[in-house]
Write a protein that binds this DNA or RNA. Sequence first.
DNA 1: CCTGATTGTTGGTCCGACCAACATTACATG
DNA 2: CATGTAATGTTGGTCGGACCAACAATCAGG
Lengths: 149, 149
Amino acid sequence: MVRRLDDRATWLVGRAHLRSHRLLHEAFAEAGARPYHYRVLAALEESGPLSQADLGRLTDLDRSDVTTSLDALGRSGLTVREPDPAHRRRNRVSITEAGRAELLRLDAVLSGVQDRFLGPLSEPERVVFLDLAARLAGDGAPGGPGRSG
Amino acid sequence: MVRRLDDRATWLVGRAHLRSHRLLHEAFAEAGARPYHYRVLAALEESGPLSQADLGRLTDLDRSDVTTSLDALGRSGLTVREPDPAHRRRNRVSITEAGRAELLRLDAVLSGVQDRFLGPLSEPERVVFLDLAARLAGDGAPGGPGRSG
DNA sequence: CCTGATTGTTGGTCCGACCAACATTACATG
DNA sequence: CATGTAATGTTGGTCGGACCAACAATCAGG
């Protein structure tokens, strides 16, 4: 207990995130998955086939991390990379049927995690928290809206 | 924008933490300090001389991370390690005058970060958020309340 | 055509959060 | 007292997440 920390928003958010992250990581590990992979699967399922660059922008992943995630997901048959006929440098990434099934499975896992994470709050409090947290999340970009690099 | 993520508490907390962490890290780096070091200085100033193990428990740092933090802080003359006369295996760590001054300086930096981080919220909203976040932070221990190891 | 951006990949870095092992020392209990 | 168990500080790692730089290939605009 360090008083100087205990009322700092950055500290509290950090500790909350630590707990959230541990719950999430643990649950996903048990399910044989990883958070990055879930992000990718979710984006593909919701937006249809995408280039890796677009995938990165949607999921807030670096291009290089998209690459390695797709390597793993592809190895498990959850996604497919094909060359984009219109842009030969671009890949067209899609989710497979197995990927959709996996996503559903992970959706359930994630929901369980939410419940455990939000356990300390009542229903109305959860609603308030989600709103405030979303506003504090902002766009996260250091250089104002619409990062380009 | 991945809808499946945008209403998940874990995602929101993660993004909020990312923004918080970037602000904090940036500001501290500019001030020539690091978050771990601030934690240590704060604990020492508030609790007086401590063993490294106690320091770790107070700040939620691993013993090994306390060691390396104290190496750096000691090199800068902000803390002092002396052998504890009562327990020869134990070190008695204290903050120096320079350390106190540095802590004050970093307090100001931290306060600035809080303001920027909480910018999107009104004053009353901030109060609510701090309360909810503190409850979600819990004690962070994986094995139930009251970790002992 | 040439320049500048974009794409995917490789191979890193950095920080925070751990963990294991070890020698040393303290402590509880037989 | 002896003996085992716990705690301390240090070293040397691991892992995940979030990056960054550089490169070759390709596209898009002037």
